[in-house]
Amino acid sequence: MTFTDTHTHLNSEAFAEDRDAMMQRAFDAGVTRLFIPSIDSAHTDSMYAMQEQYPDNVFLMMGLHPTHVKENYIEELAFVAQELANPKRKFYAVGEIGVDLYWDKTLLKEQQDAFKQQIQLAKKYKLPINIHCRDAFDETFEVLESEKGDGLYGIFHCFSGDFIQAKKAIGYGMKLGIGGVATFKNGKIDQFLKDIDISNIVLETDAPYLAPVPHRGKRNESAYTVLVAQKLAEIYHLPLSEIARVTTRNAANVYGI
């Protein structure tokens, strides 16, 4: 069985002391495709280094994370556009992009503008988007509504909404990125996922964050993608091998691999 982690911060400082061993644990678990989201210009060198070290397994996104949308966001968006235009670089999505009102609500307008501009870049380069949404479903859907139609597709990363929001996200051409939250007792999404066709689901970890049970509260890593898949096997009453096959196919279809 092979698995795809559609969203993992492999370049995080949380892995500084054992990064190679962490990667080997992922490979040993069958997690052979790993996608790194972009945060901002300061994090790109470490992201590029991971791809160069593991060219057959690591795939990159380019984008400006909503919590890194600051007063200089126009400059950061120019950097995103520059990197996407670089013929020497290969990106598989524009992400992670979106709206985050958990930490700061003062730059909502700027976050939405950055989100919209990056969706337009994704359309220009015929790439999917990888959405970050925290405490901001209405504000995120507002932008998606303005950009809906041909060329809009991707993954709603770390989906944590309700059934209605899940259907709405799918209606905008998004797959649902399901990670450790599905294993939490208070995660709630496990209560309705069985009513979402598995063709709309991809696996992710968001490592080093949101580790699944039984590692909740500890550092997450890509090997734990399998634990999320095991939870989905329970929810869908399907063999683990089928979860691996379908979610890997779904991820390949989104990212164009």
Rank of each mutant, 00 (worst) to 15 (best):
T2C: 03
H7C: 06
T8M: 05
E13Q: 12
E13A: 15
A14V: 13
D18N: 13
D20Y: 00
A21S: 11
M22F: 00
R25K: 13
A29D: 02
G30D: 07
T32K: 09
T32Q: 07
P37T: 10
P37R: 01
I39Q: 06
S41D: 14
S41V: 12
H43P: 01
S46N: 14
Q51R: 14
Q53I: 05
Y54R: 06
P55M: 04
N57M: 05
F59K: 07
L60Q: 09
M61N: 13
H68G: 10
V69L: 05
V69Y: 06
K70G: 11
K70R: 15
E76S: 08
A78T: 15
A78G: 13
F79V: 15
V80C: 05
V80R: 07
N86Q: 05
P87V: 08
K90C: 09
Y92F: 14
V94F: 06
I97Q: 06
G98A: 10
G98T: 08
K109H: 10
Q112E: 12
Q112S: 08
A114L: 02
F115G: 04
F115H: 03
K116Q: 12
K116L: 09
K116N: 12
Q117N: 13
Q118V: 07
Q118G: 04
A122P: 03
K123A: 11
K123R: 12
I131Y: 03
H132R: 08
H132L: 10
C133F: 03
D138A: 14
E139L: 02
F141C: 05
L144R: 05
E145S: 12
S146D: 11
K148G: 03
G149C: 07
G149H: 05
C158R: 02
G161D: 04
G161F: 03
D162L: 03
F163N: 06
K167N: 15
I170Y: 07
G173F: 02
M174P: 01
L176E: 10
L176Q: 03
G180A: 08
F184I: 08
G187T: 09
G187H: 05
Q191G: 14
Q191C: 09
K194G: 08
D195E: 15
D197K: 09
I198R: 01
I198L: 11
S199M: 08
L203A: 11
A211H: 03
A211N: 04
P214A: 07
H215V: 06
G217A: 08
A223P: 01
T225V: 12
V226F: 00
L227G: 01
K231Y: 08
E234K: 03
I235N: 04
I235P: 00
Y236S: 08
Y236R: 01
Y236T: 11
L240R: 04
I243D: 09
V246A: 03
T247C: 04
T248M: 09
T248L: 09
R249Q: 15
R249W: 04
A252N: 15
Y255N: 10
I257V: 14
I257H: 06
I257R: 07
